[in-house]
Amino acid sequence: MDRRTFLEGAAAATALGVAGEAMALTFTSTRLSVQVRGEGQDVILIPGLTNGRTLWDGTVRAVPGYRYHLVQVAGFAGDPARGNAGGRVVSSVAEEIARYVVEAKLKSPALIGHSMGGIVAMMVAARYPARVGKVMAIDILPAPASGFGFAGAQIRPLADALFGSLMSTPGGRRTLDNLIGRFGGSGIANSRSDSGVVAHATHELATTDLTPELPRIRAPLTVVYAVPASAQDALAVDRLYRSSYAPAKGATLRRVSGATHMIMYSQPQRFYAEVREFLRD
């Protein structure tokens, strides 16, 4: 490659990158913000509860060749709460991502979401099926509370009581702040997250059941889930995921053994391989 060709290519890549950043900057929302990195097929990356867009830094580096749209949820990871200070967080973020797809003129983007982000991704795919090309949900069940043994409406009274206790007194908020800080030390949570936003999002997740909406997802759905090395019955986890996602016809389930909830940290190379395969198909 001669110098002129190289410079022309570099200029073109720079222009495309600037265009991508401009695309994100023109989208405004009180619920989230978006940064764009790279070029290629559009991929929207949605972090989980309390985490920020930096969750995906390793993935973006390890799986180049795509235009990544990295979502930051307001109130998580040091970002001000803004519109997420009250009301429903998870479904509101899903609505904003669906709006972003339209305003940014994305054509059938892939959506990859971890934990809460997986619920968000499936909400978008079920409620706006024409806007999504494919979906990866990471270590999350369509009814998150079912992973803790709760079924149907069983969780609602408990979730309501806990939410009320945490939000109605200064002591409750301090307790939640302490919990966030404790889990932050393990890498599961980001300790700089707003406890009120976390409480609203947690309550919504606990009382959400997307099972009836799974048949509405037309896009290919891949579910990547962790089975810790300490798990006594990995087959029970397999059965839970198979039965939970049975209404999603054709869903692909991918178990990652020896992984924790933060699969991208505990088994990064395997996780990157799953993302490559998902995006390549």
Rank of each mutant, 00 (worst) to 15 (best):
Q72F: 02
E274T: 04
L279P: 07
T59L: 15
S257W: 07
A85K: 11
Q269V: 09
G181I: 08
A130Q: 15
A98C: 04
A199M: 05
A206F: 10
R254I: 12
R242L: 07
R218N: 12
Y241V: 10
Q267W: 04
S29C: 12
A159E: 01
V120E: 07
G184T: 04
A22H: 13
L240H: 01
V237R: 01
M23Q: 14
F27H: 14
G133Y: 05
T169V: 02
T30L: 13
R173G: 02
S230G: 07
K134P: 02
L70N: 05
R88H: 12
M167K: 05
S146W: 05
G181Y: 08
G38K: 11
Y241R: 06
L70A: 02
S108H: 15
A24G: 10
S165K: 13
S146P: 00
S266K: 06
G117M: 04
R156E: 15
Y241L: 08
G258R: 05
F163W: 15
Q35Y: 11
R53G: 14
R127L: 14
R67A: 05
T211N: 08
A231L: 08
Q232N: 12
A161S: 13
V223D: 07
T252M: 11
A226W: 04
D194R: 09
V93T: 00
G52Y: 01
G172R: 07
A62N: 06
P80T: 06
M262P: 02
R173C: 03
R182S: 13
S33R: 15
R67H: 09
V124S: 09
L32V: 11
V256F: 00
V18A: 13
R37L: 13
A13I: 00
G117T: 02
V71P: 00
I138C: 04
F183Q: 13
A11H: 10
G75L: 01
A153D: 15
P129Y: 02
I188T: 14
M136Q: 11
G9F: 03
T175S: 12
R82L: 15
V101D: 03
A259M: 00
A81I: 10
P215K: 07
R239G: 00
S146K: 13
P170T: 08
T54H: 12
N190A: 14
E95M: 00
